[in-house]
Design a binder for these strands. Structure first.
Length: 563
RNA sequence: UACCCCGUGGUGUAAUCGGUAGCACAGCAGGUUUUGGUCCUGUUGGUUCCUGGUUCGAGUCCAGGCGGGGUAACCA
């Protein structure tokens, strides 16, 4: 069972540290947090971060908070707050407490005044461009602002007036007074507050100054008593500043630990590029089944449990790595194989005519055969499927001139129609152009259910759907969105050229009757083809729409490709 | 050219106080099978980036190289 958390916590550099902190007594109870900014939708990369923080809390008997890092109203929105909460819940995690950085604005401001009073922060009148220019470069030190040595009293007055709205947007900022020559540019007097007259989804228009990430994050962790603040590698250079603020304030200092973000071949996790895909109309939206967003993966039919199992499996490290998407697909198949009911559907139909069917192939005679709902799960029961003299079979299951390693239907060849009868091909019908329009055969009445009393074997079993009972359904066949395993490699807008023109193909599936009752949110295995998800967005009662989640492994197709 | 981080089979990830490379996926080969699925078994791949050093012994410690990533937003 891959979707069960391991009995014993895994071993990795973060868990080792947590364990050590618990043993040394530095930490009594583990408290972690997942701190998204509500300015976009969560994607598979976030799933790793979520799984990590929630699992560690779970494994060590601790708590995990969900906190909106909502310090910049520019792109944030309540819609994202709601979506993030829904997505985390969908993954199966329950936060022990829900917090908003915006709720700490008053405390943060009080702390800012403290730093000003201590001479550790000052109001700078320079504009953004000037500040940026004076920050220096990676190899040269920055230069002090002319405002750097203002008196605490003057700074306090200015800060209060900033907050009161006396100054224009962008005209002044509050900066920490650290070291303009520091080798870590984050410590070159980082900006703490900027003036921005923007309504905030949570605090309305109470504030016209908003705290920067560095000035809010560590303190938010501190307020919540976070013991291990887990974040991705790019925040490594922010840790000294995180520590500096906590130390300067004399408040509890959590331990920030960084880990490598998740990369998966054929998937993009850059917010900017994802946005480009959506805005350029290359996909239908954030929840397009080809998107690596949690909503997209969900509509694709990826079970949350499979995603979490994958995230647990990949572990954490400080090494930037890229996982093969095959591993993700393995976890999806592994889960679906156990839980998805089997059904039969034909996606590229070819008519099979049973010449010796009682009353003639086109007659009314119908028999109902029993089919297992899931061979992996006897408890899933069985269903009855109508069998007639005219059936749809998959076009690729018939070959007029088969190579020797092709086991399926061919002239003179006998195969089993799954749960139905053995049939032997007697000939084909062709149109004027010579294309096969129907396959003719005879059936053996003694093989009902698919077993020959005389014990004779067939090399293949193929799926089918009775023509007269077939239910048409829209079926969307997805492939990787990109043709290149590393679409991020191409910079700028170039990655758009790597878009796979075949990433979505829509066909009409001929489905067995039971599928007419499929409802949004269900996953099925269409036997011998793939796992399909009944889309919860576009399906209507009696008119399901199916999304191909992932194909079944196909040794035959693979062997063909190898040739 | 500054600072920080990292470097184990194709891809990831393990290896108690330093003890002689494990696991998963992928690949390959068999077996089972009313899904060429699942399952089972076997198996190919690694001079653990390189060079030196410490040691009876190093993936694990030290030094120097090489290689990769990150960082200069009033974003997070």
């Amino acid at each position: 069972m891959n979707d069960r958390p391991p009995a014993e916590p895994a071993s990795d550099f973060i868990r080792d540290r947590v364990r050590a902190d618990l043993q040394s007594g530095r930490v009594q109870q583990v408290v972690t947090r997942f701190p998204p900014e509500p300015n976009g939708y969560l994607h598979i990369g976030h799933a790793k971060a979520i799984t990590l923080s929630f699992s560690i809390a779970q494994e060590f008997g601790g708590r995990c908070h969900l906190r909106m890092d909502d310090t910049n109203p520019e792109a944030e929105d309540q819609e994202y707050v709601d979506a993030i909460m829904a997505d985390v819940r969908w993954l199966g995690f329950r936060w022990d407490a829900m917090y908003y950085a915006a709720d700490y604005f008053d405390q943060l401001y009080a702390w800012a005044e403290q730093l000003v009073a201590k001479g550790l922060a000052y109001v700078d009148d320079q504009d953004a461009e000037t500040i940026s220019r004076h920050r220096g470069t990676l190899t040269s030190p920055g230069t002090d602002s002319p405002c750097r040595n203002r008196s605490p009293a003057e700074n306090l007055d200015l800060l209060r007036r900033m907050r009161a709205g006396e100054f224009a947007d962008g005209s002044r900022v509050l900066r920490a007074r650290i070291d303009m020559a520091h080798s870590n540019l984050n410590l070159r007097d980082p900006v703490m507050y900027r003036i921005r007259r923007l309504p905030h989804q949570r605090t309305g228009d109470r504030w016209c100054i908003y705290p920067m990430y560095d000035w809010a994050h560590g303190q938010s962790d501190s307020i919540e008593g976070i013991t291990h603040s887990l974040c991705t590698l790019e925040f490594e250079h922010h840790r000294p500043l995180y520590d500096w603020f906590c130390d300067a304030l004399g408040i509890y200092k959590p331990q920030q630990i960084e880990f490598a973000r998740l990369n998966v071949t054929y998937l993009l996790t850059s917010k900017r590029k994802l946005l480009q895909l959506v805005e350029g109309g290359h996909v239908d939206g954030w929840d397009d089944p080809r998107m690596p967003t949690l909503r997209g993966l969900r509509r694709r039919g990826y079970p949350a449990a499979a995603l979490v199992a994958f995230c647990r499996h990949v572990g954490v490290a400080k090494f930037n790595s890229t996982h093969e998407i095959e591993l993700l697909e393995y976890f999806v198949r592994d889960h679906l194989n156990r839980v998805a009911p089997r059904r039969m559907a034909v996606l590229d139909p070819l008519r099979l005519v049973i010449e010796n069917w009682p009353g003639g192939p086109g007659g009314d005679h119908v028999e109902h055969v029993e089919a297992q709902n899931n061979p992996e799960d006897p408890g899933a029961g069985a269903r009855r499927v109508p069998f007639r003299g005219e059936l749809w079979i998959e076009r690729e299951d018939f070959l007029e001139h088969p190579p020797k390693d092709f086991f399926r239907l061919a002239p003179g060849r006998e195969v089993r129609l799954r749960y139905g009868y053995f049939v032997t091909c007697t000939g084909v019908d062709k149109d004027a152009a010579g294309h096969v329009t129907a396959v003719r055969c005879t059936y053996d009445p003694a093989t009902r259910g698919g077993n020959a009393p005389d014990g004779r074997k067939v090399k293949a079993t193929i799926h089918w759907v009775a023509v007269a009972d077939a239910v048409d359904a829209e079926v969307r066949l997805f492939e990787h969105l990109f043709t290149d395993p590393d679409p991020a490699r191409a910079d700028g807008g170039d990655f758009l050229r790597l878009l796979n023109p075949q990433s979505r193909r829509v066909v009409t599936g001929r489905c067995e009757p039971a599928l007419a009752a499929a409802t949004g949110g269900e996953s099925y295995q269409f036997e011998r083809l793939a796992y399909f998800y009944c889309d919860h967005v576009d399906s209507r009662p009696g008119a399901p729409v199916f999304h191909r989640t992932v194909t079944l492994k196909d040794a035959w197709k693979k062997a063909q490709k190898a040739k």
